[in-house]
């Protein structure tokens, strides 16, 4: 293996991204009238349990058949092609939401990255869907203690929504991932 070039370090997204990064329709990977549309939502909390009102969540996922999109159009969506990428800024109560489809295929999950003021670098995590997750087979989840693995599994609400809170710090801290 050849030596890697030293990577550029990250820095916080800061407080003033709101007029730059969010874009219209960023949180709608599909229209809410799509037959398989699901609401994926939750809140982001800090180490004191206080909602974080200045954060951005991005998801990147396969479609309901497990296919990875290579199509552009996540910023200027055409309403028909599924591109797999969504971006949502949280609101003043720390809440984010996406309208999307559930990922299909083998061992599906949403890939997630979180940015926030006060957070000096990005954080990667995953969201698993409760009905399709297999704790014993999944390489990541099976490598975690059960109570930690549980932080990566969304909750199915009675109305069918997927609820996934992100906890940046503390006892309930979400598992964040290092790929290096």
């Amino acid at each position: 293996m050849t030596a890697l070039k030293p990577a550029t370090p990250g820095q916080t997204i800061g407080p003033f991204f709101g007029y730059a990064l969010p874009y219209e329709g960023g949180e709608n990977l599909v229209d809410r009238t799509h037959p398989a549309a699901v609401r994926l939502h939750g809140r982001i909390f800090d180490g004191a349990g206080v909602p974080v009102p200045d954060a951005v969540v991005e998801i990147w996922q396969v479609d309901e058949k497990g296919a990875i999109s290579d199509r552009p159009g996540s910023i200027n969506r055409d309403g028909y092609n599924f591109t797999g990428f969504g971006r949502a800024a949280v609101d003043g109560a720390g809440a984010y939401q996406f309208t999307t489809v559930e990922p299909g295929g083998e061992r599906p999950f949403f890939s997630v990255v979180v940015f926030a003021r006060g957070l000096l670098d990005k954080l990667h995590t995953r969201i698993y869907v409760p009905e399709t997750v297999d704790l014993t087979v999944d390489p990541l989840l099976s490598s975690l203690p059960p109570e930690r693995a549980a932080t990566l599994i969304a909750e199915r609400e009675p109305n069918g929504n997927l609820l996934f809170d992100i906890v940046l710090q503390g006892d309930e801290e979400t598992v964040f991932l290092d790929f290096d």
Partner: peptide, 15 residues
């Protein structure tokens, strides 16, 4: 602002 907003558990290595 980072005091309450950084994970205190180690990042979990994943492939």
């Amino acid at each position: 602002s980072s005091l309450l907003r950084h994970p205190t558990k180690d990042l979990h290595h994943a492939d």
